[in-house]
Design a protein around this nucleic acid. Sequence first.
DNA 1: TTTGATATTATGTCTAGACATAAAAACCTG
DNA 2: CAGGTTTTTATGTCTAGACATAATATCAAA
Lengths: 234, 234
Amino acid sequence: MSGAGIRSWQAIQTEVMRRIHAREWPPGHTIPNEVDLAREFGCARATVNRALQSLADAGLLERRRKAGTRVALHPVGKATVDIPVIRQEIEERGLRYGYQLIARNIDIPPPRLGGKNAALHVTALHTADGAPYVFEDRWINTDTVPGALDQPFDRISANEWLVTTAPYTHGDIGFSAQPANATQSALLDARANAPVFVIDRTTWDGEDTVTTVTLTYAPGYRIHTIIGTGPVAF
Amino acid sequence: MSGAGIRSWQAIQTEVMRRIHAREWPPGHTIPNEVDLAREFGCARATVNRALQSLADAGLLERRRKAGTRVALHPVGKATVDIPVIRQEIEERGLRYGYQLIARNIDIPPPRLGGKNAALHVTALHTADGAPYVFEDRWINTDTVPGALDQPFDRISANEWLVTTAPYTHGDIGFSAQPANATQSALLDARANAPVFVIDRTTWDGEDTVTTVTLTYAPGYRIHTIIGTGPVAF
DNA sequence: TTTGATATTATGTCTAGACATAAAAACCTG
DNA sequence: CAGGTTTTTATGTCTAGACATAATATCAAA
């Protein structure tokens, strides 16, 4: 069969999912151990391991050494959202990307960003087919990214420049709905206090902040993604 | 070293990340093949494979048979957001969960949901410490989930009941910012047209829809997650 | 009964070798 | 040179066996 018999790890994964789905193995049930499953499926234990491990990654199974493998009681749905470069996001929708720098200066970040050292403050507007798409309000730590000081950010956005230039180890991201303030509503062609989708994100390189950004999207923006790509069920 | 020498797949992964991070292997660069890396690290090829595969999953590497493994040019950031049961979400914040059914009836879904068959329509309010938290407006396909007809949904929310009862294969989910309509603003103690965070989600079991829901959160709601847990960099 | 040492067990990972497969590259042929 | 066929190559996956590790279970001593 071109691909998988019942011996490939994907086939095993599918069979395990079927049993969970069919309630042969209900939530909370401890499933047979890897050795037994390997014998049943007629394959090596490593193959079973790969299948179960990937199901555990997806949140469907819970595994603990010695304790065995259980079907998750509350399979927490996980949705993975992509955070692309804004230009790519716009171009992938088949729209013409535009970029416009609004301001760029060195300043002391507001206290809620916890900064007392001066940082590079860049604000800009990204447009799609000429219409306002998202307003970028960004602070860049010039200690961790000194190269930013040499960048005018008048043609290439900080968003794009950082991705290819500044490595980071981790970050956090928040999504919320907020009323557009005066600046935002003016730039985004929105009414005052119009509901806008806001993403705020901070990235770190080890202990040091790299950049903090607030992205305010024009009204109508929607993030869309799929749950269950690949091995997720439930 | 209690754990890994330089022969464990995690150690290899860390070393590969270090080289990418340090620009020894810049974006777009084709890295040595698995056999060579295995020789360099003094381990089996399978071990290198595991390390690289997991980095590819994280979006840091791009692999193609025969072509080899390249450092991703545009490492698309991926943020994984959890979609917990609402009760859990509230209780995890240390708040007292409350639930209140608003309406439950059989009806024809609005055309934008594509339904022409009657379905079960359930609306309810979830509260945290007595304050409105989220308004749930849900349609349940009674063909795929016939058991729903026997459920009053007056004590246990459809959200919670479905998770432990109705299996699904996949779904899609959207996040947006919208102005609260009359019903929503009244229930959520919000001003008319106040910006509210909206999640809409549809889940399927194979070809059949299971349920479609719109969750309207009270003002101030924010989804928060972390990028870079585990092997992600950039 | 509690505490600490020990045995047991299921998963986690590594190895060396093998075959499968996709895709690029090289090689024909007309 | 165009178009199709074969070769080559790097990744994808499987196997059988081994040791590592975490965590439970058991049992003995205080």
